[in-house]
Design a protein around this nucleic acid. Structure first.
Lengths: 170, 170
DNA sequence: CGCAGTTGCTTCGAATCCGAAGCACCGTCA
DNA sequence: TGACGGTGCTTCGGATTCGAAGCAACTGCG
């Protein structure tokens, strides 16, 4: 049953733990800053930032979910919340009648702008303060490649959909 | 109000996004593997692993919570769940009557051993496959320092406790 | 066209998570 | 000893999360 993979060496274990711990600590800290600055959860901020980053300020639900690594149903919930607060709008897509286009509003942009300086400040003090220029470049490079690799090998998160018929690989 | 911090440059932004995305993708994938292999959530696995790593197989609740970056109340919930499944025991501490000592059981160790090979295999294929030896060493080094820095500057997570007296800033 | 399989999103139910408040014990100071 | 603030954990209430199931629209094939 177990394919008995090579056990991880100390460096690999260190990298893994450091990745999980660092991201958890950072997320935690950022979440508090966002909550105080603009009453946003981390996901909500990610969604607004993703939309703000887009040329049109719009994205499809599915693309948003994939972008922030979130479940579809979770995104529906958050989109409803953001819409009720007037930070985004949801409109049926012209192309595809099934699809819903989420667009950031002026107020959404305002909230984003309001929390952003504090967000950047926190990152500066908490994450980048301990790192050199070369460290940051290495981080961007290595983690960027890791991310790309994982995006290409979706273990099952972003997999299209659980098929009904038996898995041919089984 | 806003202290107008230097905006982040492209490399910093890339490092930040890559960190969040990579950790999210990895967590997501690991969570599925753990669910299938031993019906464990990620936190539960982290807790068992932390206990298993200890010489005595025991830790205080607070130390566990800090270790895995979790709320106290959340840890209480998980400890109850793990206890009801017979994977850990909870006993009042001899030293301090308030304190609760959590100890991993033989069955807990067995579950841990059962999921571990798959866990390692997943890390190998998903995270380390895309990285060179030097990459992994850099990751462990840089993220390790970042983690240590963040642990020393608890933004408010591990802060002792919200005071009762009115906030002087108000 | 009409059917079958697929995709995009929402609803539903249950599990999980957190902060605030509460309770009990600990340590210090007089 | 007795008061008092600090610490460790749990309970409580509400918000958030996910997977499974459901519904509607799209696509390919004859």
């Amino acid at each position: 049953m177990t394919s008995s993979p090579r056990p991880l060496d100390a460096t690999q274990l260190g990298a893994y733990f450091a990745l999980i711990e660092a991201s958890s600590l950072l997320k935690h800290a950022v979440e508090q800053q966002l909550r105080e600055a603009g009453d946003l959860s981390y996901v909500q901020f990610q969604l607004l930032a993703t939309l703000g980053d887009s040329d049109t300020g719009s994205r499809r639900m599915t693309d948003l979910a994939d972008g922030v690594v979130y479940s579809r149903s979770g995104l529906t919930y958050q989109a409803q919340t953001l819409e009720s607060r007037g930070l985004v709008t949801r409109t049926p897509s012209a192309d595809d009648e099934r699809s819903v286009t989420v667009t950031i509003t002026a107020e959404g942009s305002a909230v984003l702008a309001a929390v952003f300086p504090g967000h950047v400040g926190l990152l500066d003090h908490l994450l980048f303060a301990a790192l050199s220029r070369a460290d940051i470049e290495a981080l961007a490079d290595v983690l960027g490649r890791a991310r790309d690799h994982m995006r290409q090998n979706p273990p099952r998160s972003a997999a299209p959909r659980r098929r009904k018929k038996a898995d041919p690989a089984g």
